[in-house]
Design a protein around this nucleic acid. Structure first.
Length: 646
RNA sequence: GCCGAAGUAGCUCAGUUGGCCAGAGCAGCUGAUUUGUAAUCUGCAGGUCAAGGGUUCGAAUCCCUUCUUCGGCUCCA
């Protein structure tokens, strides 16, 4: 007998070799039907795997990511089985579960193309196969055995994957006639895969390498109940309504024109107003925190970037240089602000007493992004960073770094971003040649970041190999409407540029020393920040930020004069107010302006005109009753103050 | 850049075995109405069907090229 310990601490005895599924059954058949994976002794496994020793056990239902992962991974295999049945000879790359669903990268073979209309057929085949209630079996095989199986099948992609695996760790999973190389875990059978939707079709380079063959990637998602799929589809539709590209057009915030150029955003008045308000707000915050504002040109001599190391790294993938007609001098469009700032640092001598120096600029930069990669405001070729560089003494690094984490947390709070993740990006220890700078400086920088994040109590993930080429960084990411993660804030430690630009300060020992540099952006780029803000708020911006805070709706044209008086009073009190003088009924005016997401609608008619009041209606909430204009002004001021209080 | 899909009025869309002069709703402009908390009524105007080329007696519809957009891949100083 073996002893199984459950998450609540209770212990029960079972026969040796019992499976997690058997255990679930012994508790209740109903539980067994809802469980899709198990964690045994901390390791996620198939439900059907026999347990040989005393163990801790956690059973995973649909609500656990582990359960969904196994469910979708099995679904990927089911899709592969369907593909093999429909298109004999198809070769398979990788087919993992992802955050929402799964995909499989396949090579359909020469001359064969999978199109959207095929997806329906594949779905149908999957449903048919799933209903056969196929048992899924796991088999440990030797490397030779695995190579043998897939070479007979002629699947060179699997062979490549196997050749990189260590002998003794290779497992195959089989359901029906289909066998795949897989680490697992999987469902015990396919009977629970009840609702299937293949969502999209895309090209994907084999192993993400653009020099290698492009495979066809089929995305899908499955659920144990049709109802869950229906809910998912509704959620997707809701997300599409929040898409910043759509709302940007509807709310007249920004636009693009092919005549101006790809990826070059054009800010319409309301969007420009919003962006400027963010900049003004940030400028005020920065001044309070000891930053000085600077300003630098949009181009820089190519030698500047040769000095910084950027030219070597990115020169080939940049906009082509600009040359002067007479002297033939070569300039680059500015892809980042740091080299300019380093020269500003060098313009004046510095004492250890002056540091840290915090130099900030809303600098517009230009980066060549591949045309297929451009996406609304989140991926553009011209964008404005809320960029700053901290030049500090080594002993100040940790404190400076922590103060920036503070600032990020404050700004995200003001923008109402409550769900963000922090990622520490370190150097890939296997590929040190990708980076510049000494090992010693890298280690100092990396430990400073880890220490600062720890001291601030920040929950972080660590990503090896994601560092900038000159130093490690801490990135703050927020999700957009369809769940994609975007990097906004970033804090990066850099010992490298100070060296390359020969930055110095005079120490207390009357010797020259080299400062440490921190690159950081809080919004990241104004464009991307606004995009994420639009999607997170569904266009209902915080009151302090929104382009128009209130609109006056006269019941009829008879009250337009009174409306204009109210408009003047409000605008004089710095409340951004409009007036809707159209000859429409009040219901129509309410509807139209609700849809424009103007926070306050002020309805005025005979009663209000006589008593110097407004009838207040809050967007999305309805009638808030009648108040005097002074009361309304106080209401707005109080709400704004609450939103931006530190 | 690569793979796949798409592009009809300012917006959302209808219009495929190729066949009068390309339609609707919303938005816009007229006029009437003077309105009390999410759509008042009338009329008008609005399109080289993304652009260019081809097939055809005839093209929004079929073919080719280009541009742009969408979903991915790759990249992101």
């Amino acid at each position: 007998m073996i002893r199984i310990t459950f998450p609540d601490g209770s212990v029960r005895e079972f026969e040796k070799g019992v499976s997690s599924y058997d255990i679930a059954m012994s508790i209740s058949p109903r539980l067994a039907a809802e469980v899709f994976a198990a964690t045994v002794n901390g390791e996620i496994t198939d439900l059907s795997r026999p347990i040989a020793t005393d163990a801790t056990l956690k059973l995973h239902k649909w609500d656990d990511a582990e359960a969904r992962h196994a469910f979708w991974h099995t679904s990927a295999h089911l899709m592969a089985e369907a593909l093999e049945a429909l298109y004999p000879g198809m070769k398979f790359g990788i087919g993992p579960a992802i955050e929402s669903g799964f995909y499989y990268d396949v090579d359909p073979g020469e001359g064969r193309v999978i199109t959207d209309s095929d997806l329906v057929l594949i779905e149908a085949k999957m449903k048919e196969l799933a209903s056969n209630n196929l048992k899924i079996t796991r088999r440990e095989v030797s490397k030779n055995e695995a190579l043998d199986y897939f070479s007979k099948k002629g699947d060179e992609y699997k062979l490549e994957l196997i050749s990189e695996l260590e002998d003794g760790t290779i497992t195959l999973y089989t359901q029906g006639n289909f066998t795949d190389l897989c680490r697992g875990p999987h469902l015990p059978d396919t009977s629970n895969i009840k609702a299937i939707k293949l969502t999209s079709l895309a090209g994907a380079y084999w192993r993400g390498d653009e020099k290698r063959k492009m495979l066809t990637r089929i995305y899908g998602i499955t659920f144990p109940k049709q109802k869950l799929l229906d809910e998912y589809m509704v959620l997707l539709e809701e997300a599409r309504k929040r898409d910043h590209r759509r709302l940007g057009k509807e709310l007249e915030l920004f636009t693009f024109s092919p005549k101006v150029g790809l990826g070059l955003p054009l800010w319409l008045p309301k969007g420009a107003d919003l962006k400027q308000r963010l900049i003004d707000f940030m400028t005020k915050v920065l001044r309070k925190r000891g930053y000085t504002m600077v300003s630098t040109p949009h181009i820089g001599n190519v030698n500047l970037y040769k000095t910084s190391g950027h030219y070597e790294k990115y020169g080939a993938d940049s906009f082509r240089p600009i040359t002067t007609p007479q002297e033939g001098e070569v300039f680059m469009l500015k892809p980042m602000n740091c080299p300019h700032h380093c020269e500003l640092y060098n313009a004046t001598p510095h004492s250890y007493k002056d540091l840290p120096l915090r130099m900030a600029e809303f600098g517009t930069v230009y980066r060549y992004e591949q045309s297929g990669e451009l996406h609304g405001l989140t991926r553009v070729r011209s964008f404005t960073q809320d960029d700053a560089h901290h030049y500090c003494r080594p002993d100040q690094l940790l404190e400076e770094f922590m103060s920036i984490i503070d600032l990020v947390q404050y700004i995200f709070k003001v923008a109402d971003f409550n769900e963000y993740t922090a990622q520490i990006s370190l150097r890939d220890p296997e590929n040190k040649e990708k980076y510049i700078g000494t090992d010693e400086n890298w280690e100092k920088a990396e430990s400073a970041i880890i220490e600062a994040a720890k001291l601030k109590g920040l929950i972080t993930t660590v990503a090896l190999g994601e560092a900038a080429f000159y130093g490690p960084k801490l990135d703050f990411m927020v999700r957009d409407a369809i769940g994609r993660k975007w990097q906004l804030g970033t804090i990066q430690v850099d010992y490298n540029l100070p060296e390359r630009f020969e930055l110095t300060y005079m120490g207390s020992d009357n010797q020259k020393h080299q400062p440490v540099m921190i690159h950081r952006a809080i919004f990241g780029s104004m464009e991307r920040f606004v995009a994420v803000l639009i999607e997170n708020t569904a266009g209902k911006f915080p009151l302090w930020l929104t382009p128009d805070q209130a609109i006056i709706l006269p019941i009829s044209e008879k009250f337009n004069d009174y409306a204009k008086n109210v408009l003047n009073l409000l605008n004089n009190s710095d409340i951004r107010t409009l007036i809707d003088e159209r000859n429409e009924k009040i219901g129509k005016k309410i509807r139209d302006n609700e849809l424009k997401r103007i926070p306050y609608l002020l309805i005025i008619g005979e009663k209000e005109a006589e008593s110097n009041t407004v009838s207040v209606r809050r967007q999305g909430e309805g009638d808030k009753g009648v108040m005097t204009i002074e009361e309304f002004i106080a209401l707005i001021k109080a709400e704004v103050a609450a939103e931006i209080e530190n």
